[in-house]
């Protein structure tokens, strides 16, 4: 953290009163300087290209477009915190792209934490922006999603995922070719993201891609995947799983 050169921040928010609040809150954060703020996509692109900020606070919904429109049109790599006022599609898009975001109304503490986290993290990858932007425009989960841990962000195809195992705030994603990736998201987030049509949750800690289910051993409450991996079925979810296999 370099104290002499504070991070330059640009705020893009269409409501003047909210913009004012963001400016005030960010000014309180150490090591930050708000170099500009605006309310539309056009203004933002011009401003960003001019001021070359280190951090962007982007409202997802703007009068003349979206926050993704801005990111796609700027050349300056910047760290981004997205803002949204309760929009399910926006949340879905952020999760697909593994992008951090804040929900309005803003909380000073949360904002501070998010800023510190983003400062220490890698800048967004182009893939992350593309995947999230597409998801937001199409209002659906794309074929590829981004998996991210502290150290990396990786794009995987949803159909490549064999199953996911969650524990203590981490989720391990097992791909069908045997690779595994540990992400910093809760399993619940993936469950919300990945559709019921393709994924089954037989256990509190497991989410299974239906494509890779080989057979179900009802008596032992075990689902066997195609490469002989055994997924336990919890007694709480057994009925639901039984129903699913009955309907097949």
């Amino acid at each position: 953290m370099n104290l002499t050169t504070p991070l330059k921040v640009i705020i893009v928010e269409d409501l003047a009163l909210l913009r004012q609040r963001l400016e005030r809150l960010l000014q309180k954060q150490p090591g930050l300087v708000v170099t500009g703020s605006c309310g539309t996509v056009d203004e933002a692109i011009a401003l960003i290209n001019n001021r070359k900020p280190d951090l962007l606070l982007l409202d997802i919904e703007l009068p003349d477009g979206t926050g993704f429109d801005i990111l796609e049109q700027i050349s300056v790599p910047a760290k981004v915190i997205f803002l949204t006022a309760h929009n399910d599609y926006a949340k879905q898009a952020f999760r697909c792209g593994a992008i951090d975001y804040l929900l309005k109304p803003l909380n000073e503490e949360e904002l501070g934490e998010a800023v510190q986290k983003v400062i220490n993290a890698q800048p967004l990858l182009r893939e992350q922006i593309d995947i999230a932007g597409n998801s937001f425009r199409e209002k659906k989960v794309p074929e590829n999603i981004v998996l991210r841990s502290r150290d990396f962000a990786q794009v995987v195809a949803v159909k490549e995922i064999a199953y996911l195992q969650g524990e203590y705030g981490y989720t391990t994603v097992y791909l069908h070719d045997g690779k595994k990736l540990v992400t910093t998201s809760y399993l619940k987030e993936y469950e919300e993201l990945l559709s019921d049509e393709t994924f089954l949750r037989p256990h509190q800690s497991y989410l299974v891609n239906k494509l890779y289910i080989d057979r179900y051993h009802k008596k032992d409450s075990i689902i066997y995947l195609k490469d002989a991996i055994q997924i336990p079925v919890s007694s709480r979810r057994k009925e639901m799983v039984d129903q699913y296999f009955k309907k097949l």
């Binding site: 409501l15 609040r21 309005k104 109304p105």
Partner: peptide, 15 residues
């Protein structure tokens, strides 16, 4: 309502 409400609360906080 929902979209407008959150923005309004945010604005209100500022006031």
């Amino acid at each position: 309502k929902s979209h407008f409400l959150y923005n309004s609360v945010d604005g209100l906080l500022e006031l």
